[in-house]
Amino acid sequence: MNAGEQLMSDVAAYISELVPVNIEQVKNKLSMILTKYHVKKVEKTEVHPDLTDKIQLFLSAKKLEGLSPVTLDSYLLELNTFSKKVMKRVEDITTAEIRVFLGSFEHLKLSSVSRKLSVLKSFFGWLTAEEFLQRDPTTKIKPPKKEKRLPKALSIEELELLRESCKTNRQRAFLEILYATGCRLSEVHALNKSDINYRTSSCRVIGKGNKEREVYFSPKAMYHLRKYLMNRTDDSEALMVTERKPYRRLSQRGIQREIGIIAKQAGLDKKISPHTMRHTFATLTLNNGADIAAVQALLGHEDPATTQIYAQLTEEKKRETHKKYLVM
């Protein structure tokens, strides 16, 4: 029995339970109607096409809103994982099933589970707003309590040790640019030589949500950037390029690798990445008395609470404050 015949029999049987009818007549009528359609049965072992279609619609809508390709890829990965576990139409997915799905990741950190829930809340919230659903099944699910861990920033001594460990103009320029601007890796990766305003020692970057902001270079960063660019012989427009021919824009992974090499040369046993330099920029500027609203703008944070986590005073700063202001 093919899918169309199975559907016809199931519907006819259901109707006969509601009202007394001639089942054969009902089947004949349904058969005429179903000839206009291609019917395919969804097996229990496959993702329901309704869920797949809704995921694609959601991602298309988010792309139009300006979400970055990296964020969209992350959403797709998380939603594909969900769809393979909960293989139903979106309107049939319950809160309990979403809880069971999230609870199956016992091996992951709470932050990772929270990220999965955040994606699902965004997805089901959009479906509800677009009236594909009458009720959002994620509304009653609270995110796990955040692990209270301070961002890992470098001390001034560690930063100087990294600077002294740079063996090439390229390494020093990369390090100073990441630290002085406080930029995200993706923002620095996208920079071109023509983006640099030498008069103001600044440039404009495109951050999360496709939002543009201005960031600034320190005198050290400008000095080492000029040295790096003066020694380049390629005609690539990219600010950061590969060391070997054919010269091309250095990948994000390549920038990460270069910072890792500098850290290894410095003999530091902690993991250091481009994001560590962003943390260091935020922490050291705030500890030096910078206004938190200004740092928020420089970092491109939409929520002040995100910047606030960097405003934790270091032990050294607390000792200085105690010594300076204690009434003897």
Score class of each variant (00 low, 15 high):
G4S: 15
G4C: 04
E5I: 07
Q6K: 03
A13L: 07
Y14N: 02
L18I: 11
P20E: 12
Q25K: 10
V42R: 04
E46N: 01
V47I: 10
V47E: 08
L72E: 07
D73G: 15
L77D: 15
N80I: 00
T81I: 14
V86H: 02
K88Q: 06
R89G: 01
T95K: 00
E97A: 04
I98F: 02
I98Y: 09
S104W: 07
F105Q: 11
H107M: 12
S112Y: 02
S114F: 05
L117N: 03
V119K: 07
V119G: 01
K121L: 09
Q134R: 15
D136N: 06
T139W: 13
I141W: 04
K142Q: 14
P144D: 04
K146L: 13
L150M: 10
A153L: 09
I156F: 15
I156N: 15
L162C: 00
S165T: 07
K167Y: 03
K167M: 09
T168K: 04
R170A: 02
L175A: 08
I177H: 02
A180I: 06
T181Q: 00
C183V: 05
R184N: 03
L185W: 05
S186M: 09
T200Y: 00
S202L: 10
V205G: 10
K208T: 08
N210G: 11
K211H: 02
R213E: 00
P219Q: 01
Y223K: 15
H224L: 09
H224W: 15
H224R: 14
L225I: 14
R226W: 08
R232K: 05
R232T: 09
D235Y: 14
A238Y: 08
M240Q: 02
T242F: 02
R248S: 06
R248F: 04
Q252S: 10
G254T: 05
I255N: 00
R257D: 01
I262K: 06
G267A: 00
T276L: 06
H279M: 01
H279D: 02
F281V: 02
L284D: 07
D291I: 06
A305F: 12
A305L: 13
T306K: 10
I309D: 05
L313M: 15
R319L: 13
T321K: 09
K323V: 05
K323W: 08
